[in-house]
């Protein structure tokens, strides 16, 4: 345990390239349309705002345990990892490439609030194209896995993209949702959602509640090595079932869940309804201990 603690490198603190290098085999990453091509956003430039040479997203090829994969990582610190025309096109191109070249998997390190408002229409269409391309890669038999553990989480359209993935790896620090707490508070009032109550925000959208509901496949600690381990575990599992029968089953499960938790307004409500011991203390557990409790509850 102590050796692990010494070598731990935070995913949350890392930038997009550091995350990719932490995920894939050493020296295996080769970037496509990288920063030297200077594909910067003309839409930010028109507004006299700073641009980035990679438009806030890194895409390319690598290997994971020797298997060829494609990988993309959003730069949460650049405009909230938001999706503009070029940013979205790079991710869409990556997934089209997956459809055509059939790697073992695509890994998407998501860190994004969704559409970039400065180029909102381009961003919305881009996310729709990304959704179709992701579904196209899956239909071609290439599993797509998402990884969420950065400061922006996965919200807006990228929250939908995240859930289109075949599996999701999250840390407790990662958040997954559609509308950010600030948006809900602004429109519906602080009584509906107090965005400054950080513990509440994490109980509504954080990795632990997402793992509990089955929205996240794996919960891992905030550590590059743990995310890499999670990605290897998902690759080893193989792609989940698809097709009409699988979607019928998902439909029934989602409907049952909605009914069971119809009155829930806090992660605590869900943990209590599931009969988990000491619901209040779940927030304190590390990923391994938490996963064991959820696994037990799922098999019970």
């Amino acid at each position: 345990m102590s050796a692990h603690a010494i070598t731990r490198r935070s995913w949350f603190e890392a930038d997009a390239r550091t995350r990719i290098h932490g995920l894939v085999d050493a020296g295996s990453f080769s970037e496509l349309c990288g920063p030297h091509e200077r594909l910067t956003s003309p839409h930010l430039a028109v507004l006299d705002l700073p641009v980035a040479f990679d438009d806030g997203v890194v895409v390319g090829e690598a290997t994971l345990d020797g298997e060829r994969i494609l990988v993309g990582a959003q730069q949460g610190e650049f405009n909230g990892g938001s999706v503009g025309e070029i940013h979205g096109a790079k991710l869409r191109g990556l997934l089209d490439r997956a459809r055509d070249t059939r790697p073992a998997a695509v890994l998407l390190a998501i860190d994004s609030g969704g559409v970039r408002l400065h180029e909102a229409n381009a961003g919305l269409i881009a996310i729709s194209e990304l959704m179709r391309a992701l579904l196209g890669a899956r239909a071609a038999g290439v599993p797509v896995y998402g990884l969420i553990g950065g400061s922006c989480g996965a919200f807006g359209g990228m929250g939908i993209v995240a859930r289109l993935c075949d599996g999701l790896i999250m840390s407790e620090e990662g958040r997954l949702g559609l509308s950010g707490p600030e948006v809900i508070e602004t429109v519906k009032g602080v009584d509906e959602f107090d965005s400054k109550d950080r513990a509440l925000v994490w109980r509504i959208t954080g990795g632990k509640i997402r793992r509990t509901l089955g929205e996240a496949t794996l919960l891992v600690d905030d550590d590059l090595g743990a995310f890499r381990g999670g990605a290897k575990a998902l690759l080893a599992r193989g792609a989940p079932l698809r097709g009409l029968a699988a979607l019928d089953a998902d439909q029934a499960a989602l409907a049952a869940r909605a009914q069971r938790h119809a009155d829930a307004r806090d992660g605590l409500d869900i943990w209590r309804a599931l009969g988990l011991p000491d619901a209040e203390r779940l927030a304190m557990l590390d990923a391994d201990a938490f996963n064991r409790i959820i696994d037990r509850a799922e098999t019970a």
Partner: peptide, 18 residues
């Protein structure tokens, strides 16, 4: 050589080397 360092975010910068 070619290199990149930093991220464009408030109070920060990126430097691209060609």
């Amino acid at each position: 050589a070619r290199a990149l360092c930093g991220v464009v975010s408030s109070g920060n910068l990126e430097i691209l080397v060609d």
